[in-house]
Simulated scan of single mutants.
Amino acid sequence: MCGSELQPLPEGVRRVARALLDKGHAHAPVMLDNSARTAQEAADALGITVGQIAKSIIFRRKGDDVAVLVITSGDKRVDEKKVDALVGKTGRADADFVKARTGFSIGGVSPIAHETDPVTLIDRELFRFDVIWAAAGHPNGVFQLAPEDLEKLTGAPVVDVVKVDAA
Rank of each mutant, 00 (worst) to 15 (best):
Q144R: 15
A100C: 08
R18L: 10
K55S: 04
A26N: 06
K82Q: 11
I58E: 02
A134E: 08
D22I: 05
G74W: 01
S56T: 05
I71R: 01
G141A: 14
V131A: 11
V142N: 07
Q7L: 14
H27A: 13
N140Q: 15
D94S: 09
H25C: 03
V30G: 04
H25L: 06
V66D: 13
A135G: 09
K89E: 15
V109W: 00
K23M: 13
F143Q: 12
D123R: 04
L126M: 11
K81Q: 14
I53K: 06
G108K: 06
S105Q: 14
H25V: 02
S56D: 02
D75V: 09
F104Y: 15
P8C: 03
L69H: 05
K81R: 15
G63D: 15
K81W: 05
S105P: 00
I48Y: 09
V83I: 07
G12P: 13
S105T: 11
V98K: 00
V142I: 13
Q52F: 10
A45P: 12
D79F: 08
G12K: 09
I57D: 01
A45Q: 15
A17T: 00
G141K: 07
V50Y: 01
D75A: 11
E80H: 07
E41H: 08
K81S: 11
F129Y: 15
I57A: 00
S110Q: 05
G107K: 00
G24H: 04
V87I: 11
A54N: 09
A100E: 15
R77W: 01
L46W: 06
V30W: 10
K99C: 12
L121Q: 03
A28S: 14
R14I: 02
L6K: 13
Q144W: 12
D84V: 03
S73Y: 00
S105N: 12
F129Q: 12
R18T: 12
A146D: 09
I106G: 00
P8R: 05
I57S: 07
V66L: 14
P10A: 12
L86H: 07
Q40K: 12
P118T: 06
A39H: 08
D117C: 01
D75P: 09
D84E: 15
G141Y: 12
A36Y: 06
G63N: 13
E11N: 05
D94W: 05
V98I: 14
A17V: 01
A43F: 10
D44P: 08
L46E: 06
P29A: 06
I57K: 02
R60F: 06
